[in-house]
Nucleic acid binder design. Structure first.
Lengths: 221, 221
DNA sequence: TTCGTTAGTGTATTAAGTACACTTAAATGT
DNA sequence: ACATTTAAGTGTACTTAATACACTAACGAA
């Protein structure tokens, strides 16, 4: 039992985990096994331990659900309306993570819950205020493509310019001109040729590129 | 006494309250009367009540310390490193507020604490991790001037273009060309002439403008 | 060697941002 | 009334970034 002179809310982290698969933006959901919202899909998350920081808690949950670590993770917003959880006052610090498309051979889940990747346009009804969280995450993601190098966080260690362009086109939901895109992205000086080529399909092989500073997201303009 | 099966952190809100005075960006600090960090300056803030939302709590604290309400308030970030408060685990949801320069005839403070406006370049040593919070708030503020109409939140109901330019110059710490600034800001179509003029000093009177959507902050470009 | 497919490239046009200096309208002092 | 001081107000040329647009190159398969 833990006693306090004043009431304390419970504190959780929830994570919107994005990846790109089949030219579609997907996010990870977990089917709730217990009440409330039993059987509904929800964002992965859980309680913050007393001896861990908030980002640390988010990375722990991320690793537990997907097995991945070291990926891009950013705090999104903190949600704490009274009544957002019917049991007790729960405040959640929401985060979003981007997983490169080559790291999704992750184990399904740590515990026995049902886990699934959902296209952002085919989301089921979500538990709690999680659809509000997802909505805000998507807005942030789209906005950041415009003024940062965030999109590179989706790329595998080597990738073609066409693949990179598809990432932008998928998330922004608009087609782009190939020549203009290449001119623009190369002018950023954030990627470089690896010297390798990707030979696949009956056509000219594509040059492979890598991100110069893989972990880093820079503001551009 | 309040009992929980699992330990809960305490939850606070802290607010970076900005205003502009004498062509200087200032923020409000409160001298701590009790331990820890007794006598040190700190951001205004306090515990979140169990029946109020997070923004509600921030607005309550803002109103208690400054008497102002209805001003621009935005969530900044949530800080929750274990050990940031020596007494117990305290997680704080940090906000920042912008107060128009004509609303600073506010009452000094609700309680007996010492309260003061400090220029952002002349801040004293701060309690807790508050200097980290201030640093992040300043970064956000500067960034948002570039891609939103945030700066208008500092303006009184009627203002001259020169005053508006000074707001940008003060916060961005760089001089701007008068003609280019006017061309740019008028092209935003976010402000309009009031028809009034400001006569003061031995020079040509300036046209007064107002913000078209006073509460609103739009992303530009 | 022809066909199918995706990779890769340049130029002209338009829009936005930057650099830069004089005139105007008022108040003050003689 | 006139000259002086002060900040308000205005336009144009130049530079840079964004856009529109179509063909050639390199490979695999038949």
């Amino acid at each position: 039992m833990f006693n306090y002179a004043y009431p304390h809310p419970a504190l959780t982290v929830d994570i919107v985990i994005y990846t790109l698969r089949n030219a579609e933006l997907k996010l990870l959901l977990i089917k709730r096994g217990g009440q409330p919202y039993k059987g509904k899909w929800a964002l992965p998350g859980g309680f913050v331990q007393m001896d861990e920081g908030l980002e640390e808690a988010a990375r722990r949950e991320l690793e537990e659900e997907t097995g991945v670590s070291g990926v891009y993770l950013e705090q999104l917003y903190t949600f704490g309306e009274p009544g957002r959880d019917p049991r007790e006052r729960v405040v959640t610090v929401a985060w979003y993570a981007l997983i490169p498309s080559d790291q999704i051979h992750i184990r399904a889940a740590s515990d026995a819950e049902a886990v699934g990747w959902f296209g952002v346009d085919e989301l089921p009804e979500l538990a709690f205020d999680h659809s509000q969280i997802v909505q805000m995450a998507h807005k942030r993601l789209v906005a950041k493509l415009d003024y940062s190098t965030l999109a590179f966080q989706f790329m595998p260690s080597e990738f073609t310019l066409t693949q990179l362009q598809q990432v932008y086109e998928t998330i922004l939901q608009q087609e782009m001109d190939k020549r203009n895109f290449r001119k623009w992205v190369l002018a950023l000086e954030a990627i470089e040729e690896t010297g390798h080529k990707q030979r696949e399909g009956q056509h000219r092989p594509a040059k492979l590129y890598r991100v110069k500073n893989p972990g880093r997201v820079d503001v551009i303009k």
